[in-house]
Amino acid sequence: MKRRIKWKISMLKNIPLLLGMVLILLSGSPINGRSETDHTSSENADLSTLQFNRIAVMPFLAGKLESPEEPVEKPLSQPLKQLKIDAASLAEGADQIMTRLVNDVLQIRFADKMVSKQEAAAVYAEVIRDQALDTPRKLAKKFGENLHADLVVVGTIWRFREKGTFNEMPESPASVAFYVYLMEVAGGKRLWRNAFDGTQKTLSEDVLGGLKQIKMGLRWLSANELARYGVKSVFKKFPLH
Protein backbone atom coordinates (compact mmCIF):
# COMPACT_ATOMS: atom_id res chain seq x y z
CA MET A 1 0.00 0.00 0.00
CA LYS A 2 2.82 2.43 0.93
CA ARG A 3 4.61 1.61 -2.32
CA ARG A 4 1.43 2.35 -4.30
CA ILE A 5 0.96 5.70 -2.53
CA LYS A 6 4.59 6.66 -3.20
CA TRP A 7 4.14 5.75 -6.88
CA LYS A 8 1.03 7.94 -7.17
CA ILE A 9 2.81 10.86 -5.49
CA SER A 10 5.77 10.43 -7.83
CA MET A 11 3.51 10.43 -10.88
CA LEU A 12 1.66 13.55 -9.71
CA LYS A 13 4.97 15.37 -9.26
CA ASN A 14 5.87 14.52 -12.85
CA ILE A 15 2.57 15.63 -14.37
CA PRO A 16 3.98 19.01 -15.56
CA LEU A 17 6.65 17.12 -17.51
CA LEU A 18 4.05 14.93 -19.15
CA LEU A 19 1.61 17.62 -20.24
CA GLY A 20 3.33 18.12 -23.58
CA MET A 21 3.28 14.45 -24.44
CA VAL A 22 0.72 13.12 -26.84
CA LEU A 23 -1.45 10.18 -25.93
CA ILE A 24 -3.78 8.20 -28.14
CA LEU A 25 -7.14 8.72 -26.49
CA LEU A 26 -10.42 8.54 -28.33
CA SER A 27 -13.21 10.90 -27.38
CA GLY A 28 -15.60 8.47 -29.00
CA SER A 29 -15.56 4.70 -29.18
CA PRO A 30 -17.34 2.14 -31.33
CA ILE A 31 -20.97 1.76 -30.35
CA ASN A 32 -22.10 -1.79 -29.76
CA GLY A 33 -22.81 -3.56 -33.02
CA ARG A 34 -26.50 -4.20 -33.51
CA SER A 35 -28.08 -6.84 -35.71
CA GLU A 36 -31.50 -5.65 -36.72
CA THR A 37 -33.71 -5.15 -39.74
CA ASP A 38 -35.17 -1.84 -40.83
CA HIS A 39 -38.63 -3.29 -40.35
CA THR A 40 -38.26 -3.51 -36.60
CA SER A 41 -35.94 -1.66 -34.26
CA SER A 42 -36.70 -3.84 -31.26
CA GLU A 43 -35.76 -7.28 -32.61
CA ASN A 44 -32.28 -8.40 -33.56
CA ALA A 45 -31.69 -10.63 -36.54
CA ASP A 46 -30.01 -13.92 -35.63
CA LEU A 47 -27.14 -14.30 -38.10
CA SER A 48 -25.57 -17.39 -36.55
CA THR A 49 -27.07 -19.66 -39.22
CA LEU A 50 -26.90 -17.23 -42.14
CA GLN A 51 -25.55 -18.90 -45.28
CA PHE A 52 -24.00 -16.90 -48.12
CA ASN A 53 -21.71 -17.43 -51.08
CA ARG A 54 -20.53 -13.92 -51.94
CA ILE A 55 -20.08 -10.71 -49.97
CA ALA A 56 -19.01 -7.35 -51.40
CA VAL A 57 -18.01 -3.96 -50.05
CA MET A 58 -19.71 -1.10 -51.86
CA PRO A 59 -17.52 2.01 -52.21
CA PHE A 60 -18.09 4.26 -49.21
CA LEU A 61 -20.53 7.15 -49.51
CA ALA A 62 -19.16 10.55 -48.51
CA GLY A 63 -21.38 12.36 -46.03
CA LYS A 64 -23.43 11.79 -42.89
CA LEU A 65 -26.85 10.16 -42.72
CA GLU A 66 -26.72 9.50 -38.99
CA SER A 67 -24.26 9.47 -36.11
CA PRO A 68 -24.07 7.61 -32.77
CA GLU A 69 -25.44 10.76 -31.11
CA GLU A 70 -28.15 11.27 -33.74
CA PRO A 71 -29.35 7.83 -34.88
CA VAL A 72 -31.88 7.50 -37.70
CA GLU A 73 -34.48 4.73 -37.73
CA LYS A 74 -34.01 3.85 -41.41
CA PRO A 75 -30.75 5.47 -42.56
CA LEU A 76 -30.41 3.33 -45.68
CA SER A 77 -33.82 4.53 -46.86
CA GLN A 78 -32.77 8.20 -46.91
CA PRO A 79 -32.26 9.81 -50.36
CA LEU A 80 -28.63 10.16 -51.37
CA LYS A 81 -29.11 13.92 -51.45
CA GLN A 82 -29.55 13.80 -47.66
CA LEU A 83 -25.87 12.97 -47.19
CA LYS A 84 -24.42 15.94 -45.30
CA ILE A 85 -20.86 16.82 -46.23
CA ASP A 86 -18.60 19.12 -44.22
CA ALA A 87 -15.79 19.71 -46.72
CA ALA A 88 -13.50 21.16 -44.04
CA SER A 89 -13.62 17.92 -42.05
CA LEU A 90 -13.66 15.40 -44.89
CA ALA A 91 -10.36 15.01 -46.71
CA GLU A 92 -10.46 14.31 -50.43
CA GLY A 93 -10.26 10.59 -51.14
CA ALA A 94 -11.40 9.58 -47.64
CA ASP A 95 -14.16 7.41 -49.12
CA GLN A 96 -11.59 5.46 -51.14
CA ILE A 97 -9.35 4.98 -48.12
CA MET A 98 -12.23 3.66 -46.02
CA THR A 99 -13.34 1.28 -48.78
CA ARG A 100 -9.83 -0.15 -48.97
CA LEU A 101 -9.48 -0.54 -45.19
CA VAL A 102 -12.80 -2.38 -44.84
CA ASN A 103 -11.97 -4.59 -47.83
CA ASP A 104 -8.63 -5.51 -46.30
CA VAL A 105 -10.21 -6.56 -42.99
CA LEU A 106 -12.96 -8.64 -44.59
CA GLN A 107 -10.60 -10.19 -47.15
CA ILE A 108 -8.73 -11.85 -44.29
CA ARG A 109 -11.94 -13.28 -42.87
CA PHE A 110 -13.82 -14.23 -46.06
CA ALA A 111 -11.08 -14.74 -48.64
CA ASP A 112 -12.94 -17.22 -50.83
CA LYS A 113 -16.29 -15.42 -50.57
CA MET A 114 -15.13 -11.82 -51.02
CA VAL A 115 -15.77 -9.98 -54.27
CA SER A 116 -12.47 -8.41 -55.31
CA LYS A 117 -11.96 -4.66 -54.95
CA GLN A 118 -11.35 -4.40 -58.68
CA GLU A 119 -14.56 -6.19 -59.66
CA ALA A 120 -16.62 -4.23 -57.12
CA ALA A 121 -15.21 -0.89 -58.32
CA ALA A 122 -15.89 -1.73 -61.97
CA VAL A 123 -19.51 -2.74 -61.31
CA TYR A 124 -20.16 0.25 -59.04
CA ALA A 125 -18.93 2.63 -61.74
CA GLU A 126 -21.61 1.30 -64.09
CA VAL A 127 -24.50 1.68 -61.65
CA ILE A 128 -26.65 4.67 -62.62
CA ARG A 129 -27.39 6.90 -59.62
CA ASP A 130 -30.12 9.46 -59.06
CA GLN A 131 -29.30 11.67 -56.06
CA ALA A 132 -32.94 12.63 -55.55
CA LEU A 133 -34.62 9.24 -56.00
CA ASP A 134 -31.99 6.67 -55.06
CA THR A 135 -31.21 5.64 -51.50
CA PRO A 136 -28.19 3.75 -50.14
CA ARG A 137 -30.46 0.69 -49.97
CA LYS A 138 -31.49 0.90 -53.64
CA LEU A 139 -27.93 1.59 -54.70
CA ALA A 140 -26.57 -1.33 -52.66
CA LYS A 141 -29.27 -3.65 -54.00
CA LYS A 142 -28.46 -2.82 -57.64
CA PHE A 143 -24.75 -3.09 -56.89
CA GLY A 144 -25.15 -6.47 -55.16
CA GLU A 145 -27.44 -7.91 -57.83
CA ASN A 146 -25.01 -6.96 -60.60
CA LEU A 147 -22.26 -8.76 -58.69
CA HIS A 148 -24.45 -11.77 -57.85
CA ALA A 149 -23.58 -11.12 -54.21
CA ASP A 150 -25.70 -12.24 -51.27
CA LEU A 151 -24.51 -9.57 -48.85
CA VAL A 152 -23.22 -6.03 -49.25
CA VAL A 153 -21.36 -3.88 -46.75
CA VAL A 154 -22.37 -0.23 -47.05
CA GLY A 155 -20.41 2.57 -45.40
CA THR A 156 -20.67 6.32 -44.88
CA ILE A 157 -17.71 8.51 -43.92
CA TRP A 158 -18.41 12.04 -42.72
CA ARG A 159 -15.21 13.01 -40.91
CA PHE A 160 -11.62 12.27 -41.94
CA ARG A 161 -9.51 15.11 -40.64
CA GLU A 162 -5.75 15.24 -40.28
CA LYS A 163 -3.95 16.87 -37.37
CA GLY A 164 -3.65 20.64 -37.86
CA THR A 165 -6.33 20.84 -40.57
CA PHE A 166 -7.71 24.10 -39.22
CA ASN A 167 -5.34 27.07 -39.65
CA GLU A 168 -6.72 28.74 -36.54
CA MET A 169 -6.10 25.52 -34.58
CA PRO A 170 -2.69 24.18 -35.69
CA GLU A 171 -2.69 21.58 -32.92
CA SER A 172 -6.15 20.23 -33.70
CA PRO A 173 -5.85 16.40 -33.62
CA ALA A 174 -6.80 13.78 -36.18
CA SER A 175 -10.47 12.83 -36.13
CA VAL A 176 -12.43 10.11 -37.96
CA ALA A 177 -16.12 9.17 -37.93
CA PHE A 178 -17.97 6.60 -40.02
CA TYR A 179 -20.85 4.12 -40.08
CA VAL A 180 -20.94 0.63 -41.61
CA TYR A 181 -23.98 -1.49 -42.40
CA LEU A 182 -24.49 -5.09 -43.53
CA MET A 183 -27.34 -5.51 -46.01
CA GLU A 184 -28.99 -8.58 -47.47
CA VAL A 185 -29.26 -8.11 -51.23
CA ALA A 186 -32.33 -10.28 -51.93
CA GLY A 187 -34.68 -8.56 -49.48
CA GLY A 188 -32.82 -5.29 -49.05
CA LYS A 189 -32.82 -5.75 -45.27
CA ARG A 190 -30.26 -4.15 -43.01
CA LEU A 191 -28.88 -6.95 -40.84
CA TRP A 192 -26.29 -5.10 -38.74
CA ARG A 193 -24.68 -1.73 -38.20
CA ASN A 194 -21.85 -0.24 -36.19
CA ALA A 195 -20.11 3.12 -35.97
CA PHE A 196 -16.84 4.70 -34.98
CA ASP A 197 -16.34 8.30 -33.89
CA GLY A 198 -12.83 8.97 -32.62
CA THR A 199 -10.68 12.03 -31.99
CA GLN A 200 -7.16 11.92 -30.63
CA LYS A 201 -6.50 13.89 -27.44
CA THR A 202 -3.40 15.31 -25.81
CA LEU A 203 -2.37 14.22 -22.35
CA SER A 204 -3.03 17.72 -21.03
CA GLU A 205 -6.73 17.31 -21.86
CA ASP A 206 -7.15 14.23 -19.69
CA VAL A 207 -4.17 13.70 -17.41
CA LEU A 208 -5.52 11.02 -15.10
CA GLY A 209 -7.26 9.14 -17.89
CA GLY A 210 -4.07 9.45 -19.92
CA LEU A 211 -1.92 7.89 -17.23
CA LYS A 212 -4.23 4.88 -17.19
CA GLN A 213 -4.11 4.51 -20.96
CA ILE A 214 -0.40 5.22 -21.46
CA LYS A 215 0.10 1.76 -22.96
CA MET A 216 -1.84 2.90 -26.06
CA GLY A 217 1.02 5.02 -27.34
CA LEU A 218 2.64 8.45 -27.09
CA ARG A 219 2.56 10.02 -30.54
CA TRP A 220 0.20 11.76 -32.91
CA LEU A 221 -1.74 9.51 -35.27
CA SER A 222 -2.53 10.33 -38.87
CA ALA A 223 -6.18 10.18 -39.93
CA ASN A 224 -5.32 7.04 -41.91
CA GLU A 225 -3.93 5.32 -38.80
CA LEU A 226 -6.92 6.38 -36.72
CA ALA A 227 -9.29 5.09 -39.41
CA ARG A 228 -7.47 1.74 -39.51
CA TYR A 229 -7.83 1.47 -35.74
CA GLY A 230 -11.53 2.34 -36.04
CA VAL A 231 -12.21 -0.25 -38.74
CA LYS A 232 -10.54 -3.01 -36.74
CA SER A 233 -12.51 -2.00 -33.63
CA VAL A 234 -15.84 -1.91 -35.45
CA PHE A 235 -15.39 -5.27 -37.17
CA LYS A 236 -14.57 -7.03 -33.93
CA LYS A 237 -18.36 -6.89 -33.52
CA PHE A 238 -19.09 -8.21 -37.01
CA PRO A 239 -21.63 -11.06 -36.63
CA LEU A 240 -20.29 -13.26 -39.46
CA HIS A 241 -17.23 -15.50 -39.23
Rank of each mutant, 00 (worst) to 15 (best):
R109S: 13
E126V: 05
L101Y: 05
D104I: 14
I108P: 02
T99I: 04
E119L: 15
K117L: 14
A140W: 00
A111S: 13
E126H: 05
I97F: 03
A149W: 00
A125F: 02
M98D: 04
D104V: 06
P136A: 05
A149R: 01
R109V: 10
Q107M: 14
K138R: 14
A122Q: 15
R100W: 02
V102I: 15
A121V: 10
T135Y: 07
H148I: 08
R137T: 12
A120M: 03
A120T: 00
L133G: 13
I128R: 13
M114Y: 07
L106T: 06
N103L: 10
T99H: 04
M114L: 12
S116Y: 03
A125E: 07
N146I: 00
M98A: 12
K117F: 12
K142E: 05
T99N: 04
V115E: 03
R100G: 15
K141I: 14
K138H: 11
T135A: 03
Q131M: 14
D130W: 03
F143C: 01
A149T: 03
D150S: 06
K138W: 07
R100T: 09
A121Q: 12
F143Y: 01
V115C: 02
M114W: 04
R137G: 06
I97R: 10
V102T: 08
I128G: 10
G144L: 00
A111E: 11
L101I: 08
